[in-house]
Amino acid sequence: KPLPPVEVKPGDHRLQFTYNIWFSRRAPGKQATTQNYDQNLKLIGRFASVEQFWAYYSRLVRPADLNSHSDIHIFKDGIKPMWEDAANKNGGKWIVRLRKGLASRCWENMILAMLGEQFMVGDEICGAVISVRFQEDIISVWNRTAQDTATTTRIRDTLKRVLNLPPNTVMEYKTHNDSLKDHSSFRNTRADGY
């Protein structure tokens, strides 16, 4: 059921959308299932203004300091960070793999671009995830309509610009439908230029 609206104090800078912060951690080696993924997903905060965002963010652990197999998800209010959610089920995500050491800076740039509406794709963005893994960190940006090539191209180009990535960084797109089929988030992806 929908959560109540987040109140914004007079004078606060309201964001275009309200967002929820989620955290999840998976025991390494354990088979991921929809059920245990759902159980591991914890809602840790909600914000609707720039001031509320910074109040949460300044208390959040930076990706570089998180244990492996942890994920932070920042999603628009009403959208659960699951493939099966109504807003996600026809969507997909851009995947950017980062070598260790880049995640905290890139993640911050990613969030600021999302909250600041720099993607200019209307309501297409659902949320973003930073996934801390053993040998790499992965940023993903989820959008509603995987088939909308104009939108996914625009998201990719904005991502490249705001993350300030090295020019040879490979970006991959994966539909949530494909993730559901092969039960994996980052395997069997479609490299940029498909």
């Binding site: 800078h13 275009q16 965002f53 910074w54 109040a55 600041g116």
Partner: peptide, 21 residues
């Protein structure tokens, strides 16, 4: 309505605002 757009520099300035503490 109008889309609320914030540039990165503005958001970064707001980080140090006492209101965000």
């Amino acid at each position: 309505g109008t889309r609320i757009i914030y540039e990165r520099t503005f958001l970064m300035q707001m980080r140090n605002s006492p209101l965000a503490k």
